[in-house]
Simulated scan of single mutants.
Amino acid sequence: MDLNQLEAFSAVMTIGSVTGAGRSLGRSQPAVSKALQDLEGELGYALFDRNGPRVTPTDKAFLLYEEVERSLVGLRTIRERALEIGREERQPIHLVATPALASTIAPAALKLIEKNGLPEHIHLRSASAEQVVHSVLHRTVSLGLTSLPVAHRGLDLHWIGQAPCVAVLRADSPLAALDVITVDVLRGERVITMSNRYRLRQRIDMALAQDKPLDVAIETNTSFNAVMAARAGLGVALVEPMTALGMPIEGLAVRPLAVNIPFYFGVVTPFGKPVGAVTQALIEAIETAARNILHGFVRRDAGDHDDLL
């Protein structure tokens, strides 16, 4: 398989039609169709069910798509870097982070190092914790910010950030009059929280369930979804503090929890890869940004990972 085939496949998966993919790629519809047919011939299975100009991806196509996109991102990065070397530009920053960190801590840290001279190009991408780890392991990014645990070999964990989780609720809720949200208060409320039971959700359950499980009415994959559900009046959101404090939203109140539920995140780079001056400055700026945004922020050594988690 070649780049032409992979780009055609990615475009059709994204747009949903061969004609639209050809228009986006600047190719003819027959050229895109042939690239897809050649790719399917090499793979030995169909990627699309065809119905005129529109196509429906098969289950195998969805499984392949994620891998193809990661590969294309890597190839585009190489192409861009080759051009930058020719223009003698500074190496760009490639930063990937979970949505909560990408939308709060990361931009604040980039602003802090701006005075020292940022590269011409900055690539900031949000992804799930598992995708952040994958990107760093495959060295397609300079730096990753992810929730913990992250015990994978092939990563350099520079330090761990810790800050207490919070409750988010409508500002006009009677609970907004409380200074602290207790477990007893939550017992009578619809709770909105995270769905990944191997990360933050596990610590929330352990700290608050005690003798009786909480009434978790809504489970979601991002803190922002949980916060907006709380804004709609669907319940009380229990989330990490970055989204609640780093993205203040009108009509919402943020309150501490009576039980300390620590949220942990880590700063990671590819194992053994030298850290450049700009990346090192960014690692330090991330700590400063976290201290500025998060109440009760504590920096911990990377060696504390296993004991904490």
Rank of each mutant, 00 (worst) to 15 (best):
N4T: 14
Q5R: 15
E7Q: 14
E7H: 11
A8V: 09
F9Q: 02
S10C: 06
V12G: 01
S17Q: 09
V18E: 10
S24A: 15
G26A: 08
G26C: 05
R27E: 05
R27L: 11
P30R: 12
V32S: 02
K34P: 00
L39M: 15
E42R: 12
L43N: 04
G44K: 06
Y45Q: 05
A46Y: 12
F48L: 08
N51K: 14
G52S: 05
P53G: 02
T56F: 10
T58F: 03
D59Y: 10
A61I: 09
L63F: 03
L63Q: 13
E69H: 01
R70Y: 10
R70L: 02
R70P: 00
L72S: 03
V73Y: 12
R76Q: 10
T77R: 14
H94L: 07
V96C: 02
A97R: 13
T98C: 03
T98M: 04
P99L: 14
A100E: 13
L101I: 10
P107F: 13
G117P: 03
I122E: 15
R125D: 08
S126H: 14
S126W: 08
Q131M: 11
Q131G: 05
V132L: 06
H138K: 12
V141N: 07
V141K: 11
S142Y: 02
S142E: 14
T146W: 01
T146L: 13
L148D: 00
L148A: 06
P149G: 03
V150D: 00
H152L: 06
G154P: 01
G154E: 02
W159Y: 15
V166F: 03
V168R: 07
A171Y: 05
D172R: 05
P174I: 11
L178H: 10
L178V: 01
T182Y: 03
V183W: 04
V185R: 10
V185E: 11
R187E: 06
I192N: 01
T193I: 10
L200Q: 12
R203W: 11
D205C: 07
I218Q: 03
I218R: 08
S223R: 04
N225I: 09
N225D: 14
M228C: 02
M228H: 10
G233E: 13
A237R: 10
E240D: 11
P241A: 04
L245I: 09
G246K: 07
P248E: 06
E250P: 00
A253F: 11
P256M: 12
N260P: 00
P262Y: 11
V267M: 09
P270Y: 12
K273Q: 15
K273E: 15
K273A: 12
K273I: 11
A277G: 00
T279C: 01
E284Q: 14
T288R: 13
N292Y: 06
I293F: 04
R300L: 13
D301M: 09
H305C: 01
D307P: 00
